Amino acid sequence: MTQLTHLNQQGEANMVDVSNKDTTVRTARAQAVISMSPETLALISEGEHAKGDVFGVSRIAGIQAAKKCSDLIPLCHPLMLSKVGIDFSIRIKSSSVLITSLCKLNGKTGVEMEALTAASVAALTLFDMCKASDPAMVISDIKVLEKQGGKNGHWQS
């Protein structure tokens, strides 16, 4: 079994010391899926939703969330992100939206948590903006798609 890195010798939670790690370019991509009624999907796809630009607001929320990740997840390091991107892919057949995030930096620790937080909060914001007309929406399939950089190199799901 792999040793847990967020525990000290006494078994107490602590932040991992990354001061001796190499600074490398690190990227991570993550996703979330939100399923909804075809009517709601049509409204947001065509920019006709009563609350306005659902994708635009959700994109900004995801970007802000990535920047605040260390405030939300107790043992995450505060990171100087150099890039955060959020993309939306409309999936007509499944009446859903695939949200993908990309986080990037030049640093000593990975950005998977930031990418996951960005995708998750973008999905939550989309849900919040559309919940009055479609309270049965489902957020699912939140996962890391890919990471690069650091001693483990490239990983892809």
Rank of each mutant, 00 (worst) to 15 (best):
Q3W: 00
L4C: 09
T5Q: 06
T5K: 05
T5D: 03
H6T: 09
H6P: 01
H6Y: 14
A13D: 02
A13H: 07
A13P: 14
M15W: 03
V16L: 13
V16A: 09
D17Q: 05
V18S: 05
V18Q: 01
V18C: 04
V18Y: 08
S19K: 07
S19N: 12
S19M: 00
N20K: 14
N20E: 14
T23Y: 00
T23R: 07
R26Y: 02
R26L: 00
A28W: 12
A30T: 04
A30M: 01
Q31G: 09
V33W: 06
S35D: 06
S35N: 12
S37L: 00
E39M: 12
E39C: 06
T40V: 11
T40S: 11
L41K: 06
A42Y: 11
A42M: 03
I44W: 07
I44F: 08
E46Q: 13
E48F: 01
E48Q: 15
A50Y: 13
V54T: 07
V54C: 02
V54P: 06
F55M: 00
G56D: 10
I63R: 02
A65Y: 05
A65F: 07
K67Q: 14
K67A: 03
K68W: 00
K68L: 05
C69I: 06
D71C: 08
L72I: 13
L72Q: 05
I73F: 04
P74A: 12
L75R: 12
P78E: 03
L79K: 06
L79E: 08
M80A: 14
K83M: 03
G85A: 14
I86Q: 01
D87A: 13
F88D: 02
R91I: 15
R91D: 15
I92C: 03
I92V: 14
K93Y: 01
S94F: 02
S95R: 02
L98D: 09
I99E: 02
T100S: 13
L102T: 12
K104T: 13
L105I: 10
L105H: 08
G110W: 09
V111L: 08
E112R: 05
T117N: 14
A119G: 11
S120A: 13
L124N: 10
L126C: 15
F127W: 15
M129P: 12
M129A: 11
C130W: 04
K131L: 04
S133H: 06
S133V: 14
D134T: 11
P135I: 03
A136Q: 14
A136E: 15
A136F: 14
I139N: 00
I139S: 01
S140I: 11
D141W: 07
K143H: 11
L145T: 11
L145Q: 06
E146P: 02
E146C: 02
E146Y: 11
K147S: 06
K147N: 05
K147I: 03
G149P: 08
K151P: 05
K151W: 07
N152A: 11
H154M: 07
Q156M: 09
